[in-house]
Write a protein that binds this DNA or RNA. Structure first.
Lengths: 333, 333
DNA sequence: GACCGGAGTGCACGTTTGTGCAATCCGGTT
DNA sequence: AACCGGATTGCACAAACGTGCACTCCGGTC
């Protein structure tokens, strides 16, 4: 029942109808604009329509993935920051250029856009892709550019319910947007973020509906997630959204937790054994996560540095997308 | 002596200097513009420079291949024309949309731009690429977008000298531009287009300097050429540029030649045996050409249809780039 | 130290592009 | 046939962009 097809057929802001003259024109326009360097005016004349329509056709062509724009940093003599991070932490770094003067929420937005565009070329057909939730992923999901794939599945990495809501709307919106962008199935994980009792989790984990999801997670070919950090600054969604009570926070403190990925916690050295809360969390076992071929971590804002350090120590990511400020900070302290 | 390095180092309109701050800024700007959707104004502020400089950085980023824009026609449900051509002639067709109202020289220009951009992604490292010459290829060579490759070589397919000139400047300009765009070596073929006596060709073909070129041609991984057509309309370069005298044209007529590729002639049915002029021509044996893995034919203008038909019958191309008008004409008669 | 040439910069202007809005089209309903 | 709502269009205006030109900066030369 959870397998929901998120097609590109009829939908929300449903674009591409059948072969229709609309998308044919979009292709023609895109070729004339991007491959022949005509102006929109010239294209409008040839297509016997108005310039504004051409402008709209083109933005549609971009949004639907008809036109793809990629920026390659010249192979291995890449920018210094990225190289240093790669050497020191053994992850492929994608540093998003952002001047220091920019405020946090704009940084998030810009990291999100660039992350979305970095991820798109990595999404293949026949993939199983895990997606976490949180403010970072939410932002990313808003900026995905479309691309058609076949038989791919997006699977929710961890439950999203809390004491106030079932969390369905929030987490599933994110998932839905991913599915829609790539024409893929989505599999929700309808459990709370944390069980109240570890025993309930154990019991639920035996349920067939849950095992289906866990099985998908084991077969993931890619995972996309942010990090939570307990350090200073803005607390991440998990720490402030009513998912944890005072007592929980105290045990985290006692266990020397510095952050989490998909509500699974870890310490500064990357270890996660014997962290009590993990027994009640619905996130993927971090060892399972580490076996996924491609693990993309998106981070924006320096307040997440501590959590990020832990995640890197744990080797949770193969690819790291982060803003320039955080990149510097990651290296220079 | 013929192996000339056409680097991207110091040159003509030499752009990319070392790692310099210039190209670093170009990368940053490109990321901010194409991946973060900032305006040039915003980028200028962050880079502490003027908007016009940003505009220039961006166009540099595009020209040097830092930014790559591709338009994919949605896999196999591609436009009707392209499918029909593929079925009927067994070549991958790339139809360049052009309204009928456009004049011939503009059609050539637009086909050339789009051809250049279609070719670029196909150019690999370690490739050996044969290039013909003529008005079509000349136009293409003017619009190549750069892309860095290693250890690739462009080799001239046929001699370019005629009774008036050695043809060096014209053909070698084309070759040079290709080499420069991809940072590749170029190998000129310093012989006339046609020898006066077949015996001279036989003799020359034993010379080591020539054999080097012939050997490269045998090892080509890609070939790029136009077609000449004897039919009506504007005569191709070869037929009007002083390469052939009246008598030659008569023998072509007698041999029922309809066109040529790289100065090797063929008939309407694709055959080329016993065409006298081919014994004196310096182009690659058409059987050798047909063994090349990827053979890209660029055609603009309906006057070339007859030659094109012959070339297709001979199976000379694996990929065909042509304007919409010619595509229609090719199918509907 | 004066001079020179080429590359890089910002300004100002004209061109090109994005977008809110009102008008129109179109398929389905009453 | 009249009506309705959503999608699509062109218009008009504002925003964003490209480029000739004059100026500056810098390294080499006399």
């Amino acid at each position: 029942m959870t397998g929901i097809r998120v097609g590109t057929d009829a939908d929300e802001q449903a674009p591409e109808r059948s072969p229709g003259s609309r998308s044919r024109d979009a292709l023609r326009a895109a070729q004339m604009y991007y491959l022949q360097d005509l102006t929109m005016n010239a294209i409008a004349r040839e297509l016997r329509t108005s310039r504004s329509t051409v402008s709209r056709l083109l933005s549609m062509a971009r949004e639907t993935g008809l036109v793809q724009i990629q920026v390659n940093n010249p192979s291995e003599r890449a920018p210094a920051l990225e190289q240093q991070i790669r050497r020191r932490f053994a992850v492929e770094a994608h540093v998003v250029p952002v001047a220091d003067s920019v405020n946090d929420s704009e940084v998030l937005d810009r990291v999100a856009i660039q992350a979305a565009r970095t991820i798109t070329p990595l999404v293949d057909s026949n993939a199983i892709i895990g997606v976490a939730w949180g403010s970072t992923l939410s932002a990313v999901s808003h900026h995905l550019t479309r691309k058609q794939t076949h038989d791919s599945t997006f699977v929710q990495l961890n439950g999203a319910g809390n004491t106030q809501t079932t969390g369905i709307t929030y987490a599933s919106e994110i998932l839905r947007r991913f599915g829609q962008a790539y024409g893929a199935r989505v599999e929700q994980f309808p459990v709370p973020a944390f069980f109240d009792h570890a025993e309930t989790k154990t019991a639920m984990w035996e349920e067939r509906s849950v095992r289906r999801i866990l099985d998908l997670q084991r077969r993931m070919t890619m995972a996309i997630f942010g990090v939570g950090s307990i350090g200073a600054g803005v607390p991440s969604h998990v720490y402030s959204g009513g998912y944890l009570d005072r007592e929980d926070l105290e045990t985290l403190d006692r266990d020397e937790v510095v952050g989490d990925v998909a509500t699974m916690f870890f310490r500064a050295d990357g270890s996660h054994r014997d962290i009590l809360l993990n027994r009640r969390s619905t996130g993927p076992d971090l060892d399972v996560l580490s076996r996924v071929r491609r693990r993309i971590c998106v981070v924006s804002g320096e307040s997440k540095i501590d959590g990020l350090r832990g995640a890197l120590a744990a080797g949770l990511a193969t690819d790291l997308i982060l803003d320039e400020g955080s990149a510097r900070r990651l290296l220079h302290t």
